[in-house]
Amino acid sequence: MAIHERDPGMVEGGGQRRGSSPPDGRSGVRASDPTRLASWLSLERKQRLAGWAFLTPAILYVLFAFALPIIYNIVLSFEQTSPATIADITAPFAGLANYRFILHDPTSIAAIVHTFEFTGGSLVGQFIIGFSLALLFSLRFPGRTFARSLVIVPWLLPLIVTGVIFKFLFQLQGGAVDQLLVNIGLVHHPIDWLDNPHLALWTILIANIWLGVPFFTLLLFSALQDVPLDVKEAALMDGAGAWQRLRLVIVPIILPVIEVTVLLGFVFTVKVFDLVIGLTGGGPANSTQLITTWSYNLSFQQFSFGEGAALNNLLLLLAVICAPIYLMLNRGSLGRSSGVER
């Protein structure tokens, strides 16, 4: 099995290869005097060598920790694995058997459907709440800095801890959520958030919205800060109402940030794992099984690494679809350099 020196990232455009690129010959040597050219060249080369030396550990790391696993995951998805083959480098070729399996396995299909429902629901909830909070924090009122600095707390907790905390809060016996709902009279009987297969997906959705709101709030807030004041004032002068100002003036200005935020929200939600393992473990009756959790189950509990890898590739495909868009949104900074030799 040859491991190609191909960068995992280059999905956009022409699929360039790294590793074989010749030394850059078109550097800014503008010396007209040929005798000085030689010393200039050696300086250029010295600097380029230094740049490469600084970059080499990162390139090796990306090849080892990203490129190799991604390529190996693809190889694995075409292999007939078993607990006995884990110790070996390769297993017998299986053709498309692993992919056929996940397309016929009811739990895999359910996991795929759940992943879309979970991701869609999370994005809608996180965007609405996050944008509202961002708008709120961009108004002037007592305590806004304090509130803004604390709103990122959910982000700093280990994800498994968040899952465990929500499991505690949502439990039927002595759970805080049910007790609060009963106390304020919203429901008469406690809701079985975790053990009711029809509700459990809602429970992980609520927990994930709680987790993701700070990200949306923070990014959208900083975007709102960048909207020029005179633009807002001009709209106000024209007699635009608050809703009109938001829809016709502010949203168009911050649209690029909204796009990046939703895109990243999507890729972050598609890979949620710890939260669900801590909260429901994929249950009850696989009703909260996502692609990630079911892939873990296939690989590490049933030792069907080939099937797990096939499901992983589907997940990878979902994430990688976003890659060209993400790169395009970041295109301004990709090749930028503010080097000394400029």
Partner: peptide
């Protein structure tokens, strides 16, 4: 950021992905 290397675009793209 400070050296003009040919691989910069490729490496930064890979990191984003």
């Amino acid at each position: 950021s400070k050296y003009r290397l040919r691989v910069t675009v490729v490496v930064v793209s890979s990191l984003l992905i």
